[in-house]
Amino acid sequence: MTRTESADRVRLPEHPSSEFRRSAGRFPTGVTVLTCVRDGEAHGMTVNAFATVSLDPLLVLAVLGTGSRTARQVLSGDGFAVTVLSSLQEPTARSFADPVRTRGGAAFSTVAHAPAPRTGSPVLLGGIAYFDCLVESTHPAGDHTILVGAVQTFGMLSEEPALLFSRSRLGAEPDPRLS
């Protein structure tokens, strides 16, 4: 393919927002549930914009929509936990992403969980890993907020394959135990 042929394939989108979302959705991401406890009540939300940031110090980030009620709960406190979901937890991911879901502690009534060692935020026991964090910083970013967490404790929960999100679909990563 020549440079000109390649350039012919690149075009300006007619509908930037929807086409941006579709283009970005081609990048597979892991799926997590971010949790916190505020005023004695647990809160949680599905987040697929999650990444590790630094090994020294240990930092992670999550990107939260500013219109989310749960995001406001998370951002109003000093700690949170992130559970990386396993391929067996698609219903959990969908439940914590549902805009009309049960709120507060009732949202955890059917999900096995335990308090994170440092923050007490719920860790979903069916996950594959968790990160228990103190809020390091927040950064406004358009219609989202970047939340940086200083990892206090972390650990592996299972050897199950991870749950991935790509092309607006949830699915399992290939099982590394079968390779």
Rank of each mutant, 00 (worst) to 15 (best):
R69M: 08
F80P: 08
V123T: 09
A97W: 09
M1Q: 08
A49Y: 06
E19C: 07
G155D: 04
S168A: 13
L59V: 07
S158I: 05
E159H: 10
L34E: 10
V37P: 05
S54T: 07
R9W: 03
H43Y: 15
V82R: 04
F27K: 04
V10I: 14
V10G: 02
M156Y: 11
F131P: 06
L134P: 00
Q73Y: 06
V82K: 04
D143S: 13
D98W: 10
D175I: 08
V74L: 11
G40H: 07
R38L: 08
E41R: 12
A141R: 04
R72N: 11
V60D: 08
G126C: 00
T83E: 02
P16Q: 07
T66S: 10
G171T: 03
R177M: 10
V47Q: 09
I146E: 04
R21Q: 13
R72V: 10
A172Q: 05
R169Y: 07
V148P: 06
H139S: 12
G40M: 04
F154W: 15
Q89K: 05
T35K: 01
V148H: 06
T32V: 13
S179M: 13
S17A: 14
T2L: 04
E173D: 11
P115K: 06
E173F: 14
T4L: 11
M1L: 09
D143G: 08
E173T: 12
G77R: 05
V148D: 01
S23V: 12
G65P: 09
S109W: 03
S168E: 15
S168I: 00
V53S: 03
A172L: 05
T29S: 14
A116S: 15
P140E: 11
R22I: 12
A114C: 05
G104C: 03
G65M: 12
L124Y: 05
T153Q: 14
L34R: 02
G44M: 06
F80S: 02
G171N: 03
C133W: 03
S17G: 07
G171A: 03
F165Q: 06
E159D: 15
L12K: 14
E14P: 03
R11Q: 14
M156K: 13
R72E: 13
H15I: 09
P57A: 09
P176Y: 07
Q73D: 09
E41A: 13
F154Q: 14
R72Q: 15
V31P: 00
D78C: 08
D132A: 10
M156R: 14
L85I: 02
